[in-house]
Amino acid sequence: MSLYKKEKFYLVFLLVFFTFFFLATKTVNEQARLYPYIVCSLGILLTIVQLGITVAKEKAGKELDAEAPMTKRQLYHLAVALGSSVVYVLLASWLGFFTTTFVYVVLFCYWHTPTQKKWMYPAVALGMDAVIYVGFKILLSIPLPSGLLI
């Protein structure tokens, strides 16, 4: 995907995003509608302006100041990072924070850099759990998520 294609893809996505909220504003009570309508209209207008600027730059053959498109490897990293985070939160609410954190930290760290000594992963995860337990639960009495286990 070229830089311009990627930029246009993002902008079209933003256009869809604002249009969705613009249409959703119809479901809001009439007295509370005015402000979201203004905001969404502004969003749509500005995105169209930016889309126009991008197309004009492309036609003029100007260089685009943008990030390089994501490689397949980067997309894979992003998917794993996001997917694992969502699974982590889901499991934490079911199993309990400390158990899930231990499993998550071990698996995530191993996936991220599998070249370190094997015993390090569970040791660091255990250390993290211990620090959070002592610091948050005992010293600061902050409410922590709980589940079936701990």
Binding site: S85, V89, V105, F108, F136, I142, L144
Partner: peptide
């Protein structure tokens, strides 16, 4: 970096929950 990112993510999750 792997321990750093995992640690920060755990703290942000914990923070938002709390």
């Amino acid at each position: 970096e792997n321990y750093l990112t995992a640690g920060i993510l755990v703290l942000t999750v914990l923070g938002s929950f709390a």
